[in-house]
Design a protein around this nucleic acid. Structure first.
Length: 93
DNA sequence: CCCCTGACTAGAA
DNA sequence: TTTCTAGCCAGGG
């Protein structure tokens, strides 16, 4: 487990149901500003083996994950997050 | 050490 | 609005 991994996972675990953050924010919060891309890579690989609320992380544009946006949307809606056309609706940014 | 990949991002076409 | 381009970053080969 690398330092980067646990840092990101730690932040991820602080998210409560209904919360939504971007990859960039995750990276910054974890102490690795600019590593948004690395965060995505991490979730893409570890989310399946680890037990993480990966669905609370979205792209800065609000876009959902590319391989299975349907599942992503379903999980978010289950927590009360508004999703329209594979996009998280952002109010007040 | 070099090179490539990707659940990223901001900005330009 | 959609597609490209050019930076970014940690991992893995």
């Amino acid at each position: 487990m690398t330092e980067f991994e646990q840092a990101v996972i730690e932040v991820l675990r602080t998210l409560a149901p209904g919360d939504v953050v971007t990859y960039g924010e995750m990276a910054t919060e974890a102490g690795y500003p600019g590593a948004a891309r690395a965060v995505g890579r991490l979730l893409a690989t570890k989310s399946s083996v680890e037990d993480l609320p990966w669905w609370r992380v979205v792209a800065a544009s609000g876009r959902l994950i590319p391989h299975d946006p349907v599942r992503h949307a379903r999980l978010l809606k289950a927590e009360g997050v508004e999703v329209r056309d594979n996009r998280v609706v952002r109010r007040q940014s």
